[in-house]
Amino acid sequence: MAFLFKRNPKTPQDLIRALNEQIAKLDLGGDNIKKYQDECARYLKQIKVILHGDDENDPQPDQISLLAHEVYSTDCLYNLIYNLKKLDFDSRKDVVILFSTLLRRQIGNASPTVEYLINGKPEILIWLIKGPESSETGLVCGQILRDCIKFEVINRFILVNPLFWNYFKYVQSPVFEIATDAFVSLHDLVTTHKKLVSEFLANNYDNFTTSINQLIQSNNYVTKRQSVRLLAELVLQRQNQYFLNRYFDDTNNLKLIMLLLSNKSKNLQIEGFHIFKFFVAKPKKSQRILDILIKNKENFIAFFQNFNITSFNDSNLIDERDYILTEIQKLPDIERIN
């Protein structure tokens, strides 16, 4: 009953200060971990009420503003992220709520939180990027990171950081949730801000293609499917023109995609088809690509005539298959180039 006698923090500033104190104690460790955890949980719940209101009360903008200011000036977000593992399971999710609410808060056109993360404490972002390294807190970090990525400056910050390339490792984590969560992050990082991404892909064509091709060759069915799907999404983006031109001129890519078509899994064949069709439909094909297509003309025709996709109930898909089949039939026969 001790907490009944304890003074409850009155103002948002008091609340943040009290929270920071408890986190500091948690950080030191000791026998009373559980007690500090409970205290942190309690304060985080109160913070959540200030931010989102509850059944009786609506959130008050001035209270939120006071709270936000105190959070920045005391590096509360850093303390929370740094000690995320020490918080209890459910409190970690309250940290996500604190982050996402603060991120959405705007003054004019500027988001003070984004400004703080980029110029004040970029260490927080580094921690978040490394999130998938811990299976305990990986999902929580992933959620916060994706909230941050919504802002182009942060997205850029991550893409130019060498740590970004770790995501191609993280998506292969043996822990299923971590791997898939990392994939969602990777996906958001290279699809959210089109212009930024097109620039990034143009500058990093080799690295990126090598990395994603490695994923496509993975033995894990889910990794394979997710990575082909991501690639298919990227090649659909017109802004990625430079990347597309190089990608569809590379015979190695075509070979990998043909391997996908020959995969036993129907779904992988279809994902592969969504990339393969661009190789065929591209107006100016390089000679080397053309050579491969012509060499396999008969094979392709036989394959696509039997490419059974009716069970997917997708009339677009059937149209596309028929179109690709006609295009392939238009290719010169192998005798003529001999």
Binding site: F89, D90, K93, L139, F176, E177, F183, V222, R229
Partner: peptide, 27 residues
Amino acid sequence: LFEVTKEIQIISECRLPQITRYYGCFV
């Protein structure tokens, strides 16, 4: 596939005696 993975994220975030507990998964 993508709905399924989302689903797993959600159940893995729930730990309460009144909710069936998630222990893990693999492909």
